[in-house]
Design a protein around this nucleic acid. Structure first.
Lengths: 350, 350
DNA sequence: GCCCAGGAGGAAAGCGCTTTCCAGGCAGCG
DNA sequence: CGCTGCCTGGAAAGCGCTTTCCTCCTGGGC
């Protein structure tokens, strides 16, 4: 077990100074005679030389590393975002550091510290922001400091401290799903939430509530079920839903993973979807299409979201201005999991 | 925009040498008087000091970075593995570098070079190995060199060059799925493959063939459909399957993603599953459970696979011996997507 | 034939750390 | 009181690069 060859080894083998080696291996504009360049190159491949990105990063002050914080890469939503991010990162010579936070404030903070230690050039927050004040204070300090050091930061959700954001309009997206249910004639609409204290969850819940109230319905806390964004969280929510009396005729989940979980569990309990209960979600993950019945949901360009986020990061890295807030369009996709409630006609026919 | 504080700044603020700062911030065993330590610590937090992992890595020769090469993180199988890997990496102070290869030899090689440049401590191959000789030659050189430099390498599939592997027995796993179909009475069993030139694909295809032949059936190349491990690849395979005459009564897909795609497309074409055609997969991703009808598949402890792989890597990193080959158990999970073929009784009843 | 510009290569500083080797101080011991 | 040895702390070398000066050399213009 030895050590990788260093620039010094190559220099000696090619009988030049390390300066010259650096010039031919790197991006320097200083000219090198073709013959010399050739000699260096040959020596390099002969020795199996690979320039240390660490040493280079140390002096150039850029690592070409970007950290991506996702709630859970196992959720098809985040998986898709990750692909978008990575593809465009790779195309631009960046490497991505994967950080699953499970939306835990402490894990997220921990990762942020680590990313700072590694001097990541950029950070992408793929999920919602925690609202816990202690966390926020810590986050603000970290973010402020990192920015001063030139770290680019972008979020794919609403984020404080002026962090540039790109994402859908949660309020509108949630609203249009609720309205769809309302138009079908539903009056008792349950909501499977996410973790309280996460911006995205709060926004969607608030939108659910306000659309309901705008329709003249009373907001009933009993109808909001705890969830955790996962398939199994959706299943658990289904159990709770079944215990509510009178039973809701529709349910909107904060994301498709929970929606699918809920839908499947409901079916297992013998309920017919959508005949007895309608189910809708948000995100339009692939499973939304192939679950039975196919899920009505709000479609979001997942991969694109990741790609655009990364592109913004790149822009920031290049010192260009990053638009503070870019809204990506969404659209309601009505499939077969929603229908008018039992013995009721759609509102539009009233 | 400034520069992060360096160890030097802290030393000056605490009025000690950088040696002392290093000793209190790092893992040194050299003792430091409590009072001094306290001073250093205070100065560090006051200045918002974060030790540069890069500089540290440069001198200690370990980066605490591990690269994970996956086919496609969007496939729930790889997503699960990734979680297993990351959780145990984080628990041990390692950071994971995400590398989606799409099973392209050149992308994989490119990533390997990059990982070498970054001096990643370890590399985990999560998917199968390419069999292209040009690729293999290049890979061997790279792997050999990296090992000499102390890089730990582990694969979650069969890999050459003595790379330690942990994974299921592809031959047995595929075999038991085929046998299940055979026992139900199927005689025309199609196979949705992966990319030719990938070890896992070849192994599973070979197993499919040999079990068929062992049962006295002729191996018919017409029945092996091209696939690409994806949901949409499965859908395309369904179209091809429909064009085969006489139509196969069952199909086994190389992985669940394609199986689900095929199953859904078949349904869309009006076929009843499993009444008219049985579908089976391998891996047991969550979707296998909730697709309708639920997919018969070979269950693999996905998350565990990732975790164990990472644990092996850790062992290698610690200089301990890594078992050259560890087989993880799998098990056939019979769900509702498989049944006896139309107008035929199960073989066991003959 | 001489001078100057520009092309090509090198020396050395420095990026932010760890680690080895050393030195000073002080307590304990004879 | 002198010596030994432990306890703390520091100096300096070096990890593998990039980059800023410099120097040297060559060719072209006059």
């Amino acid at each position: 077990m030895s050590t990788p060859r260093s620039i010094y080894d190559v220099a000696r083998a090619a009988d030049v100074s390390i300066t010259t080696v650096s010039r031919v291996m790197g991006t320097s504009t200083h000219r090198v005679r073709p013959a010399t360049r050739e000699r260096v190159l040959r020596a390099a491949v002969e020795l199996g030389y690979s320039p240390s990105a660490l040493a280079r990063a140390l002096v150039t002050r850029q690592t070409r590393l970007v950290g991506v914080l996702v709630g859970d890469a196992t959720d098809p939503y985040f998986a898709g975002i990750l692909r978008g991010v990575e593809d465009t990162a790779r195309a631009n010579g960046y490497l991505v550091l994967l950080c699953n936070t499970d939306r835990e404030a402490d894990v997220e903070l921990r990762y942020l510290h680590v990313l700072r230690d590694y001097r990541a050039d950029g950070i992408l927050f793929a999920g919602g922001c925690q609202t816990d004040p202690v966390y926020l204070r810590e986050l603000e300090g970290l973010v402020t400091r990192m920015r001063e050091h030139g770290t680019a930061i972008v979020a794919l959700a609403r984020y404080p401290f002026g962090i540039p954001e790109v994402g859908i309009d949660n309020t509108a997206a949630t609203g249009c799903a609720v309205e769809h249910l309302l138009e079908l004639g539903h009056r008792r609409i349950a909501f499977i939430g996410g973790r309280p204290g996460v911006s995205t969850s709060e926004e969607r819940l608030a939108a659910y509530r306000s659309v309901l109230e705008a329709a003249g319905l009373r907001y009933d806390p009993v109808l909001v079920l705890p969830g955790d964004y996962t398939y199994s969280g959706g299943r658990r929510a289904a159990d709770l839903l079944l215990a509510i009396s009178p039973r809701p005729t529709a349910v909107l989940a904060i994301n498709d993973a929970s929606a699918v979980g809920c839908l499947v569990a409901l079916k297992e309990h013998g309920l017919r979807v959508p005949a007895e209960v309608s189910v809708a979600g948000i995100n339009d993950i692939p499973a939304a299409y192939y679950v039975e019945p196919a899920l009505t949901t709000v479609s979001v360009p997942i991969y694109e979201l990741g790609a655009i986020g990364m592109r913004h990061l790149l822009r920031g890295l290049a010192g260009e201005a990053v638009p503070p807030s870019r809204r990506i369009e969404h659209s309601l996709v009505v499939r077969r999991s929603t229908a008018p409630p039992p013995r009721a006609r759609p509102r539009s026919r009233l």
